[in-house]
Amino acid sequence: MYKLPHILLLGFLFFCITSCSEDAITSDITSLEAKNIINLEYGTDSHQKYDIYLPKNRTKDTKVLILIHGGGWNKGDKSEMDAFKDFIREQLPEIAVVNMNYRLADVNTPPYPMQINDIDRVVNELRNRVQEFQISPEIGFIGASAGAHLSLLWSYAHDTKKQVKMVCSIVGPTNLLDESYVNTTDQELRELLDQFGSDPAVLEAVSPIYQVTSTSPATILFYGAQDPLIPNSQGIDLRDKLKELNVTHEFTLYPNGGHGWIGLDLLDTSIKLKAFIQNHL
């Protein structure tokens, strides 16, 4: 739920050998040249901005991956997902990438439903601009930590038009009613969880494990067995629920991983994630 360690995010750059400039659109999008539009506003709040990276030779069938950053719901920035953005653009250059910011929680404003509403706004804007951008309305999500929680929750409970074809959770919370959370004595973790309040009905509504159904999109999960913030049960229980509901899924628990990982584990993540996107988006 904290910001995913830079060592994991920056590690994806190891697999990206080229980068693209971040120039705003200056010509007609019908040229079908690669275009990068930075800090598009989708609301009046300073955090309601997103970047979109449109590949060359795109068509109305070009799928879109939306990246959701972590930060405990109350901090973080889309720049923290740049390594994932670069990885996708290098390894899967036919896919459009959206990297979004969302409004951050504070003492007066809880994360839910505010942050889900922001994802709604971005998805609706993308759907309304499919002709302009020359993209498909079909989307996927990659989220890290708190961003993974939001990605799962929106995909399972708020995708009323069934646009999501796949969702990836990297160390995302899945069950805020987990006994490990309810009974935690860690003050900092308690403060993060308390942002959602204590009403069991609300905690259930914001827990992806209670929102997943047999029609939920293909889901890939990555967790670290030594993660101090995400109990092993968060990933394992969702895996078991997906299996019970016969939802297409993959699950990886790295024995030595924490709230992030490096080396061969990171390589394994990149290979599995690329294949999953290719197969399901």
Rank of each mutant, 00 (worst) to 15 (best):
Y2H: 15
H6T: 15
H6P: 15
L9R: 10
F12A: 03
L13A: 07
S27F: 11
L32H: 13
E33W: 03
I37K: 09
Y50C: 06
D51R: 03
L54Q: 02
K56Y: 10
T59Y: 10
K60T: 11
V64Q: 02
I66E: 03
H69C: 04
G71P: 03
K78T: 13
D82I: 12
A83W: 14
R89F: 00
E90S: 14
I95A: 06
M100C: 02
A105S: 09
A105C: 03
N108Y: 12
P110Q: 07
Y112I: 04
I119A: 04
V122Q: 02
E125N: 07
L126P: 04
F133Q: 00
Q134T: 08
E138W: 03
A148C: 10
A148I: 13
S155D: 01
A157L: 06
T160K: 14
Q163K: 11
G172Y: 03
P173K: 01
L176G: 08
L177K: 12
L177G: 05
E179R: 05
E179I: 11
Y181L: 05
Y181R: 04
E191A: 12
D194H: 04
D199Y: 00
V212N: 01
T219K: 09
F222N: 15
A225H: 08
A225E: 08
Q226Y: 02
S233C: 09
S233I: 11
Q234K: 02
G235Q: 11
L238R: 00
K241D: 09
E244N: 08
F251V: 01
T252Q: 08
G258I: 10
G263S: 00
L266F: 07
D268P: 05
K272D: 08
K274T: 06
Q278S: 08
